[in-house]
Design a protein around this nucleic acid. Structure first.
Lengths: 209, 209
DNA sequence: ACCTCGGGTGTACGAACGTACACCCGCTCT
DNA sequence: AGAGCGGGTGTACGTTCGTACACCCGAGGT
């Protein structure tokens, strides 16, 4: 094979490993406590690889959070895509809130990463754009089952519920979550059944619109 | 008056000035970018005063965020206390969302500080406790007009709406906010008029002014 | 008038950071 | 076989940080 890249030295997993390690470090020590050195150590790569693979800390963070947002969006699309009617969609939303806010004894990975991203987004435009795109995609998934206005409100509600749930002492409170979702989506059932919408997890995400 | 503290040297404003300066620096540079030196420079006090007045950075942050939470709670109590019925309470909530999320061209002070606090809360128990107390007090104010379950849902909704509003490109969207609040509080009007409720806390703070 | 005391400060130290850059070495081409 | 090349790495530099601590000096006490 005329491989232009000598695979013996350069493994393509390298970049991904660094990105994953970066997310681990961020979740553990915060963006503030994240350094090239810590990420390099966690990923098992030399310090010099950091500046080689990424143009500075900002680029690394951007890539890491993009990866994180993709994961969460994929979860949204999977759960909402599997729902076959509005009631199942409501259940799926409750599951998402539950999942996003679960902090199994100091775990809270998703919650921490979300806050870290929002904090960045509040200050740096690049991350604000990234976050907006994330929100937009989540909303599209919600619009498979709910009208646009409801989707927006529901998206905000999910956010708030997840945040508050994560901060509470006793973790379980599903009834309240379900009730809140029911209220927000009460008058918002689409004209036809949800099933009228095309494929769920497929590629065509804008189909419902 | 046998003043044990020579007031000529020690002005009590000193500590408060430092706390206020700390909040300014946090809003501007984030908790990560906040240092004793920056705060000292902003407050116009020597660097040595930092370690003299506060036992390390953590104590300073704790005090600063306590002050911030107090301010926001005071706003909640003022607006909700002024409402004379449920409809006015709903309007007050919409105002609060509007106020908390307004980012006048990079201002976003409240939004930024909130995210910074949540990020800290996600990691350090002391700040988590502080945040819980803040949420509890907000909920109490909401319970002046809504039943406890609705208050909790509404509190979460306010959070989510404020966050999403702050991130959006075009700032104005009041109709959506009002609609969401109406839905969450739809079935939740208390039996009698708002003022009739003595308040479960029994403390004197429920006295509408 | 002198001493004492303690609140308040300036400075210096060790640690950790991002990043630039000289260097190494396996691969490829002649 | 030898040279050239470029992807990948180790190290060193300048900066910034929190904090400890020796020091200053005005205010009572005698």
């Amino acid at each position: 094979m005329t491989a232009t890249t000598p695979f013996g030295r350069h493994d393509p997993d390298r970049r991904d490993r660094i990105v994953r390690a970066a997310l681990d470090v961020i979740a553990e020590s915060g963006v503030a406590g994240t350094s090239h050195r810590k990420v390099a150590a966690r990923a098992g790569v030399p310090l010099g690889s950091m500046t080689y693979h990424f143009d500075g800390m900002d680029a690394l963070l951007r890539e890491a959070f993009t990866s994180f947002a993709d994961t969460v969006v994929a979860l949204f699309e999977e759960r909402l895509g599997a729902a076959r009617n509005v009631d199942e969609a409501r259940e799926a939303v409750a599951d998402l809130v539950h999942h996003l806010s679960r902090g199994d004894a100091g775990n809270q990975r998703a919650v921490v990463l979300t806050h870290e991203l929002y904090t960045l987004a509040a200050r740096k435009p690049a991350f604000r754009e990234l976050t907006r795109e994330w929100m937009r995609r989540s909303r599209v998934a919600l619009e498979w089952h709910f009208d646009p206005a409801t989707a927006r409100q529901l998206d905000a509600l999910i956010e708030g519920l997840a945040i508050h749930r994560a901060l509470e002492t006793e973790p379980h409170d599903r009834a309240l979550t379900v009730e809140a979702i029911a209220r927000i989506t009460a008058r918002a059932e689409r004209p036809g059944p949800t099933g009228a919408d095309p494929g769920p997890t497929g590629s065509g995400e804008a189909a419902a619109r």
